[in-house]
Design a protein around this nucleic acid. Structure first.
Lengths: 152, 152
DNA sequence: GTATCTGCAAATTATTTGCCGTATT
DNA sequence: AATACGGCAAATAATTTGCAGATAC
């Protein structure tokens, strides 16, 4: 489980483990890391009658990013979203312009292999690459199917 | 020149051509489309003693995006940035974590070919792709060279 | 016990909007 | 002349910050 990792990581950096920090991390674990924004995390905790102030949610999320538990994302809205950093699976995102769903393209749909040779090319030219961010937008298979249904 | 295209495009959609709209578009043409944010466009015009209010800058930029003259970008700051849509050259971005410069990876550095087969794969699975957004972060060749210099 | 953390409310930043006078067609 | 547009100032939305009391270690 992840919460113990947090406990350990905090201790190492002389931060303190608090109920609030545990709760915020748990939100991401419980929701299966559904690209939540800070406001959504706050609401989720309110619903569970768990008292964490909004300021603390923001501060804790920042901390979790700093410690490498969360990755900060942007999808062209006015909000930052976050996902659990899953060390062994890099992925890209597909955002459906119709239903808004964010798909994670990984495993057999991973773009990693495809990009690998390209990244080598950049590195040969002196670019040192720390992060790759690949996003697609369009219509997802589900919505595309529905749309076809309507046409007929 | 692009300003005439704007004039034409506006007429077609029964929008009006105004000095402010011309000025805002010109900023992007004159600065070689350096990924400016709205605030920067506003400042640029102030310096040139061209009077355009901030609200108009925002509204005009939105319009230019809607008309397809500008593309809206996000680089994990709290600001939207914009670039001229250059029809015949899709490109990705490399953001240097050291100097902050944003590089456009195009022409011989274009990732288009590499991604092409991958996109076909997605489309075979029913995804309809309208937009691809690929970004890298790391250290650019210039900064990498400098850093090496310091080490010695 | 002490330094870190939290909650609250106020501040900040980027962007949007309402309203009314102005300019384009 | 009619309608779209621009400027201003106020409104909004997301996030950040200062401070005083609470809590982890």
């Amino acid at each position: 489980m992840h919460v113990d990792n947090l406990k350990k990581e905090l201790k190492e950096k002389q931060y303190r483990m608090t109920p609030q920090r545990e709760q915020v991390l748990k939100v991401f674990l419980e929701t299966n890391s559904e690209h939540l924004g800070a406001e959504e995390v706050y609401r989720y905790l309110l619903n569970k009658r768990t008292n964490v102030s909004k300021a603390t949610v923001y501060r804790t999320i920042d901390l979790l990013v700093e410690l490498g538990f969360l990755r900060k994302l942007q999808f062209d809205e006015g909000v930052y979203r976050y996902e659990l950093v899953d060390k062994d699976s890099k992925h890209s995102h597909f955002i459906c312009n119709s239903c808004g769903k964010i798909y994670e393209l990984k495993d057999e749909l991973s773009a990693e292999k495809v990009l690998h040779e390209y990244i080598l090319k950049l590195e040969k030219l002196g670019y040192k690459i720390d992060e790759v961010d690949l996003k697609f937008r369009g219509i997802c298979p589900k919505c595309a199917k529905k749309a076809r249904g309507i046409v007929r």
